[in-house]
Design a protein around this nucleic acid. Structure first.
Lengths: 201, 201
DNA sequence: CGATGTGAACGCGTTCACAGCG
DNA sequence: CGCTGTGAACGCGTTCACATCG
């Protein structure tokens, strides 16, 4: 699944370069994998290529967008208007891909009422009611670790079914909810691990 | 490797609760895995437990810190003082784990010369010289996508051997350099993918 | 007797190799 | 003839089950 995103990015780049056809080999090179992998991945969802030629860039791009669920717009709630929250709100790729952060929540009374590019920051107490009313299904959780578990449960109660979690905490939620953890501390730890063990030689 | 970070966090929590011993079962529950997995993971690096009892929380914590390379401080360069850069700079877990962001670089003349908690923002032109002089081996790349590839190469030329890359670009660097990609767009795409396919039932 | 450490079995994603089609 | 689509072989991480030791 993760590789499909890579293919999509590669196809966008190829399209910008004006190429209409791309072989699995070309795609593999751009996405950092092998041609067999590309063909296997794509064959799971259908037969998008033409034998002897390759894949049509625009149509394959459309197919992958459809597969990833990017053929629509997704309203997203941002919980936590701290530094991480503000960075995510301004992240251009989100909007480009159809993810609209259309609700922001924070506990800090100093922030509540402010607007970020027209989107009002609402108090945490409005969270459940507002999300339920607007039918938002996707949320970005960018609150401090101690609050994360509680907020996660409130989100689910409000009808959220997918959470991108930046708190270094294991959310305990029903399996029906998709949780994707982004743990920045873990990422640098992986670096120091590898660096430490490379040196051993 | 990624799970070791989870174990470390679990051990810290257990230590705060005053527990001196922890079985693989307890650790597994906290880290979101199974007891067999915990034992197998730890046995790769040595025999840290006592049969019939479990693992000593403080000593195992020390062992894992050592394995992850957290038994020292790591000077880190931050390249890109935009929204993501500022969020990462303020991220508390980095400093707690021994990662010191001790150099910041940006192209924007308006930012150069500013100080973030005492750390001066330097111009991109100083990057190579300053990093080489200070012997920094680890860098966080938080620049816009178009600049990422070039900056990555400069970092490596300056002696950097590990990069945490936030740009949605595949850096093409020698294998001797460890690159860890964090691609936020990909993370939300994984959510929309799952949500789209859950609905099919 | 309880919980670790570990060889053996399992499952799954990746890679290989080639049949099939344009 | 070129490149896709795909069954088969491979490798590797996970899980199982039990011998081992305090």
């Amino acid at each position: 699944v993760r590789r499909l995103s890579h293919y999509l990015r590669a196809l966008e780049a190829l399209g910008d370069e004006g190429l209409a056809l791309a072989s699995s080999e070309v795609l593999a090179e751009r996405a950092g994998t092998t041609s067999a992998q590309v063909r296997k991945d794509l064959s799971i969802f259908g037969s998008f290529g033409r034998r002897g030629l390759g894949y049509e860039v625009p149509s394959l791009r459309g197919e992958i967008e459809r597969i990833l669920g990017l053929d629509r717009r997704w309203p997203v709630a941002l919980v936590g208007a701290g530094r991480i929250g503000s960075a995510l709100f301004a992240y251009p790729s989100f909007r480009e891909r159809g993810f609209d952060i259309c609700a922001i929540f924070d506990e800090d009374p100093a922030k509540v009422g402010c607007r970020w590019e027209g989107v009002e920051i609402r108090p945490a107490s409005d969270l459940e009611r507002h999300i339920r009313r607007s039918g938002i299904e996707m949320a970005i959780l960018a609150v401090p670790a101690p609050a994360a578990r509680t907020v996660g449960r409130v989100l689910v109660d409000a009808g959220v079914r997918a959470i991108l979690n930046f708190a270094p905490v294991q959310l305990q939620l029903p399996d029906s909810v998709v949780v994707n953890d982004v743990n920045l501390a873990m990422e640098v730890e992986a670096l120091s691990f590898t660096l430490s063990h490379r040196d051993r030689e």
